[in-house]
Design a protein around this nucleic acid. Structure first.
Lengths: 339, 339
DNA sequence: CACACCTCCTTGAACGTTCCAAGTCTAGCT
DNA sequence: AGCTAGACTTGGAACGTTCAAGGAGGTGTG
């Protein structure tokens, strides 16, 4: 209202003076409106809107103890495929937390130390909770945070520790691959090959199990049809050539990267994916969308929503004994697997 | 040291008591170590390390006025290509700000309102500065923030307003395309086609200018060789067929998406990129790496570093009259353009 | 020997909010 | 009219840090 509005930001006290009430009343108008008489509330809110007042986050955090920030360690991707996935997940995370008044704080840590960064943020009370996204086999973050009593939710299940009692959300990779396998079986393929990662990858073996299960259920042979290779288009190309020599007519892959390698192998032999052969990848990457590759799509948006919901439970009711949640991916059918 | 270390986090006062000094001395040990006598400093730092003290961010922010947070609006990508780019940029941003003690705060805004979200963070003094990444044609963020006196650095130059005096960093798309064109000319191609976006795209026209310039300098014709289409593989595929009919033997594209469309067109004709024809995309996407597509790579890591440097200048010396900086991309040569 | 001076450290206040306990006012009851 | 319950409002204190002054101790100088 006055010209003092420029330069000096409005504070609770200045709003109170303008509205002719006390600081606490203004605070209540914001945090507990039901405590005020309607006319008082209206007057106070009017002044707030007028001068454009927004509570100072630092002061609020200092007094109330909560920062309304969610920490997420954002490391450079280790695998090629991780990029785009994280992107979709992160977008939804930011969108969803908006509704709860939280923001996402990204931090980095020393490359070799998976725990680096968490400690500082925790001790400086900079964040209310963490979201873990890199809980692969053997990562110590979850146990470490839990031991410390820090609130967090993990994207990825605790493979190593079935006793873990923290909240987590994960995607059922096996179910996704099972869908893909069904799809190819339904199209008449009987020699369906699996191209996956090394057996040391828990996620990779989970995905492979979906193929194995469906092949077994359909009474189809799997011996010699599974290849465990590195996540690399060229390795997949070579493996595909070999599988084709062995009579394979369709492929389910643990990643789009591999599927694109298969696509090359098919092209080199003058075969066409979708007519002569069937091919399904995993992750529904941008490349898959462009080249018309069928792919298993993880419900990352839904994962993010569930992560936020779990976070909300933890922060609001400390007793919330929410634990694991497994979501099912969907199969996106494109040219590479449909005639 | 004591068993009180569990539960109650150490504070400046508790550290001071343990070290036998005053609060301020502990504060100085952290922020102005040169003010302390060496032995006192050592003793205080010892206690700090012992009890695992980290200054409370809220209190520090409240008193000093700076949050050590950099705000970045993280909207769902409008264009397909934007994803991976943002990812690389963001990773380096997080890494680089780590050294300066800053963190990245991601926030979302209402879809229709490009200004939404900035205001609240500014008024609540939640962030020290912003990084803008969506400064396309006609976006009002930069002008709005500047008017408000808010510190920020933009990734992307102010095409519309050459008078703008804020700091920005951008990539010279024209120079990148010029490199690609040179490369194809050097390989013996004379009929090099340009596949780009609609003329309304400032960035698109900037890139196209690099092709135009080099073709002119080499005395090669460009008439009828430029196509302006939507950023879409299928549109590019169709355009490529037409250009091939017209005698084009090489393509420079404004995006990898388009280049992949061209790749399909070539395959459909039994032509091989790299031997019969030359093809270069833009952005060095994951797909380009997988299929062996030559592409212009933006120096996003370097952009992020420069953005942080500019930010540092602004925050530390308010007079710093740093303005624009244009970085040059590099050409990554792969099979699609080399025999 | 007193004075100023430098070095090192300490004390009180303040940042803007929310919690706590106590205060004022209105209305209802006897 | 006096008293009380309830609804609403108030002022003081506290969160943990940094800023601005000020104080203790020693050393050099007239």
């Amino acid at each position: 209202m006055d010209d003092q509005s420029v330069g000096v930001p409005p504070t609770l006290a200045s709003v109170a003076e303008l509205a002719g009430v006390s600081r606490q009343t203004v605070s209540n108008a914001i945090n507990n409106p039901e405590l005020l008489r309607p006319d008082t509330l209206e007057r106070v809110l009017g002044v707030i809107a007028n001068v454009g007042y927004t509570p100072n986050r630092a002061a609020r955090q200092l007094r109330s103890g909560s920062s309304h920030l969610i920490g997420l360690r954002f490391d450079p991707p280790q695998e090629h495929t991780a990029n785009a996935l994280m992107d979709r997940f992160l977008h939804t995370l930011v969108q969803t937390t908006r509704a709860t008044g939280h923001h996402i704080l990204l931090f980095a840590g020393a490359a070799g130390d998976p725990l680096d960064g968490y400690d500082d943020l925790l001790r400086s009370t900079a964040v209310d909770a963490f979201v873990l996204t890199d809980t692969y086999t053997g990562t110590p973050q979850a146990a470490w945070l839990q031991e410390r009593g820090a609130p967090f939710v993990a994207f990825g299940r605790p493979w190593d520790d079935p006793e873990a009692s923290h909240s987590w959300v994960d995607v059922d990779g096996g179910a996704g691959v099972a869908q893909a396998t069904d799809h190819l079986i339904g199209a008449g393929h009987t020699a369906i090959s699996w191209l996956g990662w090394e057996a040391s990858s828990r996620i990779g073996e989970d995905r492979r199990s979906g193929w194995q299960r469906r092949m077994d259920e359909a009474g189809l042979p799997t011996h010699g049809l599974a290849e465990r290779i590195t996540d690399n288009a060229d390795a997949a190309r070579l493996a595909a050539h070999q599988q084709i020599d062995n009579g394979a007519s369709a492929f389910v892959c643990a990643s789009d990267t591999m599927a694109l390698g298969v696509l090359q192998a098919l092209a080199e032999r003058g075969l066409s994916a979708g007519t002569d052969t069937g091919l399904v990848g995993f992750d529904d990457s941008a490349a898959a969308q462009i080249v018309g590759l069928s792919s298993v799509r993880q419900p990352l948006e839904q994962v993010a929503v569930e992560v936020v919901a779990a976070l909300h439970d933890i922060l609001d009711e400390p007793s919330g004994d929410r634990t694991g949640l497994v979501l099912t991916p969907t199969l996106v059918v494109r040219r590479s697997s449909s005639a």
